[in-house]
């Protein structure tokens, strides 16, 4: 007890797995009416923890609570963390309201990310629905920065409306690349939108890839991933080559509390990225 008190007083010793590391908000970008991107840097400097595309951090809004938020920045950039947060509950709303200079707690990175090693040399299909683009953005950076390592790349992004598109300027720039097809579709639009209107699954039939050597990555609402996986399977991609980023209510993030259990899996430890072949039967169950 005396040792523990001494550690507390001096700040020495193992802080334990639940201790957040303070980070400062260095910039804040309003993406849409309810979605904000924060760039964080560790207080005291340093490179910060490296992460794999698809992993997540637990972000702690002091005095409010913690939430699991996917990494949405470039994994090759050191020293900063990028997180895109949609204000839907108390914690995410508090995180969304953070301003440059504010301090936030960070622990992580956690979970298993996208199968980047398996993707090399193959065609890649990326499908995102709504906020689901955020966990896929790190892998899109990876694809673009090592473009020669991959075959054909098809990115299909769906949003409710043009005003809800994330990373708008960046998408415009990505869409100018001739080595990748980046399709954007929305559920409905006003007269100022000249792009596609419809759902992401409608874009699958004419997507260009060789199903025998393609890895598909997807993130979005479960219904979107389920329908997209079915559409890709109908094109001949094996369920083991379709990878989904699952979302569950994560609390501990270290497979201790069981809040994120999905069938036999803990999403925080075994996911969030899992192959469709392993989880498809659970997606069909009403309450897992």
């Amino acid at each position: 007890m005396r040792e523990f008190a001494a550690e507390l007083a001096t700040g020495t010793g193992d802080p334990g797995p639940y201790a957040p590391f303070p980070h400062r908000v260095i910039s804040r970008t309003k993406e849409t009416a309810d979605t904000t991107t924060l760039v964080l840097a560790p207080i005291g400097g340093g490179k910060g923890a490296r992460f794999s595309p698809g992993q997540f951090n637990m972000l702690y809004a002091f005095g409010v609570g913690e939430a699991a938020i996917s990494m949405s920045g470039d994994p090759s950039e050191e020293g900063t963390l990028v997180h895109t947060v949609r204000a839907v509950g108390n914690v995410s709303t508090a995180l969304s309201r953070l301003k440059p200079g504010d301090v936030v707690g960070v622990r992580g990175p956690y979970g298993k990310g996208w199968p980047v090693d398996q993707m090399r040399g193959k065609d890649v299909v990326v499908m995102a629905g709504g906020l689901g683009l955020a966990p896929l953005r790190p892998v899109i950076y990876e694809l673009y920065s090592h473009r020669e390592d991959y075959g054909r790349v098809e990115i299909i992004y769906g949003s409710r409306s043009p005003t809800e598109l994330l990373y708008y300027d960046e998408i415009q720039s990505w869409r100018t690349r001739t080595d990748t097809r980046f399709q954007v579709t929305v559920d409905s639009a006003d007269r100022n939108w000249y792009g596609d209107v419809g759902v992401v699954t409608q874009r699958v039939p004419d997507a260009r890839f060789d199903p025998a050597r393609t890895i598909a990555l997807m993130c979005g609402p479960e219904i979107m991933m389920k329908l997209s996986a079915q559409a890709l399977e109908a094109r001949g991609i094996a369920p083991s080559d379709i990878w989904l980023s699952m979302e569950r209510n994560m609390k501990c993030a270290i497979a201790q509390c069981g809040h994120c259990q999905f069938g036999p899996y803990f999403i925080c430890r075994d996911g969030p990225v899992l192959p469709y072949a392993r989880i498809r039967r659970f997606l069909a169950v009403r309450e897992v």
Partner: peptide, 12 residues
Amino acid sequence: DDTRVQLADIHA
């Protein structure tokens, strides 16, 4: 079918 899927709000 596509209209039904649109109504399911799959791009939320």
